[in-house]
């Protein structure tokens, strides 16, 4: 039996050969995955057809959060120790500018309007709102200690920021930049994601070991997920990255030093599987059709590629030291 994955790769390889005729520049072989390596100050470029690292770019110090612009022609990188958000042109693979991020930006999120970007300033307990076209800071909002996870609702009206040491989700009105509510969660909240209909918000708590699902209307907890992996001490189960699938009822939660990704059925909230990946799995990204899930594994310094239908790891790709942020470009 030829697996879906192998077929896809076979076709992709033929595509690569064809495209190789057309252009010898590897940046044009789409799709490509980009991975920030926190301790190498580099960005690894992975060809998603061959699953090989085709380029490693020098970027700012301690790069962590990484997102693509709406048209995927550019990307924004949080270079935490350089105290800036770098803008990289993904066609030429060159840094073309900075955004005024404030100190120690760790994560970033883009508003659906494509022109407003939010960043969490971890050392200053601030959320900075930046207008991309003018490169101006529109607002700075006081939040809890060590803000980290950011999420903007799909309708663009609301956003949240989690604060790791204050253990809160701060709800922000994106029009007024006002903090409209604060909800306590379990210890050390990291990642946040709105469901496609914006009715629920998922928040991971690294030390609490849980994922809390909030009703976005009432801002009350609707559900709490706990995880248990046989043979793994509960302290080692530390949920960080979350991704929800667009069309099928599944969510994925990276469990940090448990070295596993949990597969959650979003209808039943049952955890259907724990997928073994590399060590200290951190952030997650899908490819365009969400057939593949990529994970950054900090301690082992690699990226696992998971088939989202079979939940099997199909490939492990060695990148730099402490891979952190990840995104896939297909446009």
């Amino acid at each position: 039996m030829i697996s879906r994955f192998t077929k896809k790769r076979f076709m992709a390889n033929s595509f690569l050969i064809m495209s190789f005729w057309a252009s010898s520049y590897s940046a044009s072989a789409l799709p490509q995955a980009y991975v920030t390596n926190e301790k190498d100050n580099t960005l690894s470029v992975i060809d998603m057809n061959t699953f090989e690292v085709t380029d490693t770019l020098d970027i700012g110090e301690r790069p962590r959060g990484f997102i693509l612009s709406a048209d995927q022609s550019r990307a924004y990188i949080c270079a935490s120790d350089s105290d800036r958000i770098q803008i990289i042109d993904l066609n030429t693979h060159t840094i073309v500018g900075d955004l005024p991020s404030g100190e120690d930006p760790e994560t970033i999120a883009l508003h659906p309007n494509g022109t407003t970007i939010y960043t969490a300033n971890e050392d200053d307990a601030l959320l900075t709102v930046i207008d991309i076209p003018t490169s101006q800071v529109i607002a700075q909002i006081d939040v809890g200690v060590e803000p980290e996870g950011l999420a903007v609702s799909h309708d663009g009206r609301m956003m949240v920021v989690t604060s790791e040491t204050t253990n809160m989700v701060h709800w922000i009105n994106t029009n007024t930049h006002e903090n409209i509510a604060n909800s306590l969660v379990d210890a050390r909240p990291r990642d946040a994601h709105f469901t496609a209909d914006d009715k629920y918000l998922w928040v991971s708590s690294e030390i609490g070991g849980t994922v809390t699902i909030f009703d976005t209307q009432t801002k009350q907890k609707a559900h709490t997920l706990s995880f248990a992996v046989k043979g793994v001490y509960r302290d080692k189960i530390q949920p960080v990255g979350i991704l929800l699938m667009r069309d099928s009822p599944y969510a994925f939660v990276a469990l940090g030093p448990a070295n596993r990704v949990a597969v959650v059925n979003t209808n039943t909230f049952e955890i259907e599987k724990y997928i073994v990946v590399g060590r200290r799995v951190w952030q997650l990204a899908f490819n365009q059709d969400q057939s593949l899930l990529l994970t950054t594994n900090g301690v082992s310094g690699d990226v696992s590629v998971i088939d989202t239908e079979t939940f099997d790891v199909e490939k492990t790709i060695k990148v730099g030291r402490y891979p952190w942020g990840i995104a896939v470009k297909w446009k």
């Binding site: 529109i138 909002i141 006081d142 930049h177 006002e178 903090n179 409209i180």
Partner: peptide
């Protein structure tokens, strides 16, 4: 830059 500090925070 700081004129829009969150109004609800005490």
């Amino acid at each position: 830059m700081r004129s829009e500090i969150n109004g609800s925070a005490k």
